[in-house]
């Protein structure tokens, strides 16, 4: 039985579409992410962290290599799949920018992330109204349950579920984005700087939520982060990328104390 959730083999990616002339962002990158853990991915700006997420999410192509994903039943080469298929095999993504549907309600933002897509075709909408209304009730109940699990019984999101998501603060939108991911049963979550630009109070909430998702649901999480404290609190293991190469891997405290990392981040 394999113990990885994601295994990247020999991944090569050039900066531009002209593969022969372009310098390489990743040159035969090879790394394995263990299953069931929270992995912190650190690195300076431009190191290739988000590009790596984009390749895993199938939003960007690479030049060569494989990305093996183990969903428990079988190993799948992600590079052979389309982006919209990944959710179906248990991979979720939180973007660096808030990709919240701002002109939709908080509840609709959650419902759209639901596992069950029944009623999302015109035919079903028009001719199976009774059944799709039942399914909708189940989705709403799940949204309520997730919000209660994450933020408590009388949480702000449920109480204001019919308000537009644009009325939420930036930090609240981040939390909503994470809650939306939980509407489906994911095995791997890719979180791109979930605490960037948020108030310390919300940052603590996000860290707590990340730990909770990992421990209570057993979801593997890879988190891109610049904040040492967030990595210390959330990650089981940490990986430092420098100029497209893995410069250091290990427990968060070792990585934070690593001279290469300290030199790159704080210049000492």
């Amino acid at each position: 039985m394999s113990k990885y959730i994601l295994k990247i083999n020999d991944l090569t990616k050039s900066f531009t579409s002209d593969k022969d002339k372009s310098p390489l962002l990743f040159d035969s990158l090879t790394i394995e992410f263990p299953a069931g853990a929270v992995i912190g991915l650190m690195g300076t700006n431009g190191a290739g962290k988000t590009t790596l997420f984009n390749i895993i999410s199938r939003l960007v192509d690479c030049d060569k290599g494989n990305i093996w994903y183990d969903n428990g039943d079988k190993q799948i080469d992600l590079l052979k799949l389309k982006a919209n298929v990944l959710k179906g095999i248990g991979i979720g993504r939180l973007f660096q920018d808030n990709h919240i549907f701002a002109d939709m309600t908080i509840l609709d933002n959650l419902l759209i992330g639901g596992e069950d897509s029944f009623g999302e075709t015109p035919f079903i909408t028009l001719f199976k109204r009774k059944k799709h209304k039942e399914k909708e009730k189940i989705r709403v109940a799940k949204a309520k349950m997730i919000l209660t699990e994450l933020f408590g019984k009388d949480n702000y999101f449920w109480q204001n579920r019919n308000n537009y998501a644009s009325e939420l603060s930036y930090g609240q939108q981040r939390l909503l984005g994470i809650a939306r991911l939980l509407m489906s049963d994911h095995k791997l979550l890719l979180l791109d700087e979930p605490t960037a630009g948020v108030h310390p109070e919300i940052r603590e909430m996000i860290c707590e939520v990340i730990r909770k998702i990992n421990t209570s649901k057993g979801v593997s999480i890879i988190i891109i982060e610049h904040n040492f404290k967030v990595i210390e609190v959330t990650a089981d293991e940490c990986c430092f990328i420098d100029q497209g190469e893995i410069a250091a891997v290990g427990p968060p405290e070792d990585i934070i104390g690593n001279p290469i990392v300290r030199k790159k981040y704080i210049g000492i």
């Binding site: 939003l59 990709h99 549907f101 939306r180």
Partner: peptide, 12 residues
Amino acid sequence: EDELALITLGKN
């Protein structure tokens, strides 16, 4: 509103 977000939510 956001095609990219919808793709990652598994929609075609």
